[in-house]
Design a protein around this nucleic acid. Sequence first.
DNA 1: GCCCGCATCGTTATACTGTAACACACATCG
DNA 2: CGATGTGTGTTACAGTATAACGATGCGGGC
Lengths: 172, 172
Amino acid sequence: MAAGQGSASGTDGQDTPAPDVAHALAAADARCARAGAQLTELRRQVLGLVLESDQPLGAYALLDKLKALRPGAAPPTVYRALDFLLEQGLIHKVERLNAFVGCVEAGHDHAHGHDHHHPHQFLICRDCGTTVEISDHAVAHALEAAAQRVGFTAIQATVEIEGRCATCSAAA
Amino acid sequence: MAAGQGSASGTDGQDTPAPDVAHALAAADARCARAGAQLTELRRQVLGLVLESDQPLGAYALLDKLKALRPGAAPPTVYRALDFLLEQGLIHKVERLNAFVGCVEAGHDHAHGHDHHHPHQFLICRDCGTTVEISDHAVAHALEAAAQRVGFTAIQATVEIEGRCATCSAAA
DNA sequence: GCCCGCATCGTTATACTGTAACACACATCG
DNA sequence: CGATGTGTGTTACAGTATAACGATGCGGGC
């Protein structure tokens, strides 16, 4: 079993045995422990699959991968795990793609007390589809200010910028 | 032709409850004319339905309403119209709700030359579900700046802020 | 007039995304 | 032991969106 981490399924040229993933999983463990949440085997597997991919994965793509580890997996299997991971802030959903990515800050060890969602934004390249997560505080502040201006109390923001990444810009 | 739309009546042929809607439709006409696009009867009907609603409408809710005007309407009927209206910037999609709203700026008469998408943001209340569109330039600039900081060329941004509207905040 | 290409729309079928509902296993607690 | 709560397996279904093909109508070139 446990061979699951590295050579996923001949994805692309990049075959990362990913010590990053192992580290992120350990951080996730600590985070869940602090939050009193259980990072079960299933949830860890799903998180691992999301983290392994450098690009957003749809729920059913994830399901396909998960089936290699859990033959009986069905849609609710993966959706329940995803819901948990979203609640814990370990992954984010890219609404425009109906897909999920590991959270860039999940690996950071914050002082306890900061266990919730952090502001984040996605940059999605129209040409190559590459999706990058950033966490820009100026954007967060602008959003907060804009909301307050109309008496709205912001809790969480979905920000997804579509455009052209540096690589594709250079190519064009 | 007695396809009533519920409220307004009495006026001859035209069955438009809101003068806002009529105005917006006229503006849409002008806009499409300038863009060399055809605002056909179907598209105008769908746009009218979206504009009539003060809240986001899902494609199938829209389809149900459209069936009153066009018995044969099917999913592609409404999706094609929505695609056109999105391209023309006459409506926006709220990704988190899989729903569509009329564009707040579509009714404004801009100097020609400004026929494309404008920056916009949605405020979605968790309690009452009310969705409001704003167009905050500070947010737009912050997004642009954040993107440029990583060499990304922004073309269009989806911004949806979830939280509590003024009314629901006051109630709580 | 006639043909052709194009955009629009009708129609059927299907793919993709997400949930409801119920059953079972196990752990904790009185 | 029974009761409760969480996590998971399993079946079925709801909701969202698109593919594919046909029919119509309109404008341009012959």
